[in-house]
Design a protein around this nucleic acid. Structure first.
Lengths: 340, 340
DNA sequence: AATGCTATTGCACGCGCGTGCAAGAATCGG
DNA sequence: CCGATTCTTGCACGCGCGTGCAATAGCATT
C-alpha cells in the first residue's frame, strides 16, 4: 500500500504497521510480545491478530541494540572428533533455547582463525562465551579474555584454574577415585591408564588422581600412556603399540581411559588387532558415557556426567546478574556395563 | 571521563568516542573498519590506533539493523547421533567464517521446540537457513518456510524436491551406481542393502538406485532391511536379527549401508555377536567417510562427499544476489579400503 | 456522582551504525 | 599558478525497539 515510506529496505513489517492495524500505539504492540508486560488481555489479543495477519514478529537485533542485552551466547568449540561433543551441543542448545537464549557456534579449530572468530562473536555483543573445547587454556582463552566484551566466560565440562572464568564441570577427582575404587573392588591387578594430551595441566587431573588412588591402595604405581589427541584412531594405535610389545603375562588386565573416545578405539584394537577378548583378557573403562557406550558391541563401563543438570545450571548462571563466583562441580555416576 | 552521556548502558565505547580521539568524524571511523571503503591510509591509521587504545570494535547488531543484512545464517540440525554431523558442522562453520558469516546453531531435535526455535532465528533476521538434519521434509521444513523471513533456505548434503528450497548435495544416483558397480566388479553375489528410515522419500533414493542397478546387471533383486534411525546401535540390532536367522549359505556376502553410522554398527555386530570376519565372511560398504572409517579397526570402504567444495559453494550461493536456481549436486568418490 | 486507587497506555529519547549525496581537500596537466 | 578531476570526508535521516515516566482509563467505594 504505502510503499513510499519503506525506503531502502525490503518492506519489513514493523511494530508501527501492526499498531496502525490494531488501533493502538507501537509500544503496546511490543508489550504484547513480552510475557511479563503490563497490558490488558484485550489489547494483547487485538495486537496478536493484527500481527498474525501482517506476519509481524519483533526484530531481535533492534531489541538487543536498545536494551543492551542480546540473549545470545557464543559457543566456542575446537574439537570435532569426539562424538561426545555432539551430545554436549544438543544438551546446551536445548537448555539455552528453553530459556530464550540463542547460540552462536564458533569454530576455533583453526588456530589462525580462532582469534578473529572470537572477536567477531564479541562484535555481535554476545552476553557470554561458553568454551566446550579442549586446548583452550592458552591462546584461545587469552583471545577470548582479551576481547573484553564477554560479560561471562564459562568453561563447560572442564575445570579451569583461571580466575576470570566460570567453570562448570564434573568433579574429576571424585569421579576418578570412584573409578579406581571400582577397579580395585573388581579385583583387577595391573591397570594401565590411557590419557589424552599432556599439554594442559587440567587434563592431567584424572591421570594423577588415578595414579594416586591406586598407589595409596596397593602401593603399586600403575603404568600410563598418552596420546596427542582425543581420537579413537590414535588411541587404537597407541594401545596396539603398547600391548603388542608386552608378553601376555605382563599385559595389563584393565585399561582405564580418560574418555570414551579413547576407550572405544582401545576396545576395537584389543579385539581385532590383538585378537583378545574384552573384558576377559583385558577390561576397559571409559569416561563420558557417549551413546556408543551403550551399544551391545561395546557395553562400556564409563562415568556419566550429568550434562543436563550442568546445562541447566549454566543457564541459571547466565540469568543471574550478581558477579559472584559461579564455579561449580557436579557429581556424576559410574555406569557399569560389561566391559569392566 | 564524561560518564554523563553514557546514560543507561554500561559505558560502551562507540564510534563517536573513537572519532573524538582520532580527530575525525564518526563516519570516517566506521569506514576505517570496512575493507572496501574510500578512506585515506592516514586517517585509517589514526582511527585504528585510537580504536585500539579505546578498545573499540564496531557493533554488528547496529550495523545489521542499519543495513538490513545480518551476515548470519541459521544452521538447523536435528541429528546429534551421527558423528558425520560434527564433520559437517566443522566444514560449514569454517567456510562461512572465512567469508565473514556467523552461524546460529538451532536444535530442532525436539519437535515441540522446533517451530519456536526457527521462528526465533528468523527474529534475528538471519540471511539464510541451512538444514543439515534428517527429518526435515515435513513439519520443520514447513515451519521454516512459513517463517517467511529466510531469504534463502538451503538443504545441505541432502536432496529435496521442494521448489522453494536450494539443495546442495552429492549426486546420490551416480554415487550409488558406482557403489553397485564396485560390488559387482568385486564379485559379490548376494548383497543386502541396509537402509535408514523409510519415512521420507528422499531417503529411498540410494536404496532404489542400488536395487535398480543390481537388477539391471544381474537380474536378481537384492534383499534390504531398514532401521528407524541412523543409529549404529539400531543398525547393529537389525543386522544381528537378520543375519542370525539365516543359515550360513543363505547369508549375504556383502552389506551395503546407507551411511557409515549404520556400517560401523553392522561391522561391530558381524564381528562380535556373530563371530564372523569382515570382509572374508561378510563385507561392508558405507557412505560418508566419517573419520572412524579410516581407523585400522574398520578400514571401511565408503563414499566420500566433497564436503569442503559443497560448503564453499554454499557460501557462494549466500553471497550472490540473483534469485536463480542454485540447486546443485556434486560428485564424490568411492574410497576403497579393506572392508569390501 | 465524586473520590481514590490501580491497571493500561503513550511518548521523548536513545541504542550504534549505514546510505547516498554534497562539500571539501588533494592532485594534475598545461 | 589555475581550473578540472579525483579522493576523502561529513552529514541528515533512518533502521526497529526499550526505558522510565507521565497521562489516561477503568473500577470499586462511599
Amino acid at each position: 500500500m504505502d510503499d513510499e515510506k519503506k525506503s531502502r529496505h525490503s518492506a519489513n513489517v514493523t511494530a508501527d504497521d501492526v499498531a496502525l492495524a490494531a488501533g493502538v500505539s507501537r509500544w503496546t504492540v511490543n508489550r504484547a510480545f513480552k510475557k511479563a508486560a503490563s497490558i490488558s488481555p484485550k489489547s494483547r489479543e487485538k495486537v496478536m491478530t493484527a500481527a498474525e495477519a501482517l506476519g509481524y514478529v519483533p526484530d531481535l537485533r533492534a531489541a538487543s541494540l536498545a536494551s543492551d542485552r542480546s540473549n545470545l551466547v557464543a559457543l566456542l568449540i575446537d574439537d570435532f572428533a569426539n562424538p561426545h561433543k555432539l551430545v554436549m551441543l544438543e544438551r546446551l542448545t536445548r537448555a539455552l533455547r528453553r530459556k530464550g537464549w540463542d547460540t552462536l557456534l564458533v569454530n576455533t579449530l583453526d588456530r589462525e582463525d580462532a582469534a578473529p572468530a572470537i572477536l567477531n562473536a564479541s562484535q555481535r555483543r554476545v552476553d557470554a562465551a561458553i568454551l566446550i573445547g579442549i586446548q583452550f587454556d592458552d591462546d584461545v582463552l587469552e583471545a577470548a579474555l582479551r576481547a573484553r566484551r564477554f560479560k561471562k566466560l564459562i568453561i563447560f565440562a572442564r575445570t579451569s584454574e583461571n580466575p576470570d572464568t566460570i567453570s562448570i564441570s564434573v568433579d574429576d577427582i571424585k569421579a576418578t577415585q570412584e573409578i579406581a575404587a571400582y577397579v580395585l573392588a573388581r579385583g583387577y591387578k595391573r591397570p594401565l591408564f590411557l590419557a589424552g594430551p599432556r599439554t594442559y595441566s587440567a587434563h592431567l587431573l584424572r591421570l594423577e588422581t588415578f595414579v594416586d588412588s591406586w598407589q595409596r591402595a596397593t602401593g603399586d604405581t600403575p603404568e600410563n600412556i598418552s596420546v596427542a589427541e582425543y581420537d579413537p584412531i590414535l588411541a587404537a594405535d597407541a594401545a596396539y603399540k603398547t600391548l603388542s610389545a608386552l608378553p601376555p603375562q605382563a599385559r595389563p588386565d584393565i585399561i582405564v581411559c580418560e574418555n570414551d573416545a579413547l576407550a572405544i578405539g582401545t576396545i576395537d584394537t584389543i579385539r581385532h588387532r590383538l585378537g583378545l577378548r574384552v573384558p576377559q583378557d583385558i577390561a576397559v573403562i571409559g569416561f563420558d558415557d557417549v551413546p556408543q557406550a551403550e551399544s551391545p558391541n561395546y557395553r562400556l563401563t564409563t562415568y556419566r556426567q550429568p550434562l543436563t543438570d550442568m546445562a541447566n545450571y549454566l543457564v541459571d548462571v547466565l540469568e543471574s546478574a550478581e558477579d559472584i563466583d559461579f564455579d561449580r562441580t557436579f557429581t556424576g555416576r559410574l555406569v557399569t556395563r560389561e566391559s569392566a
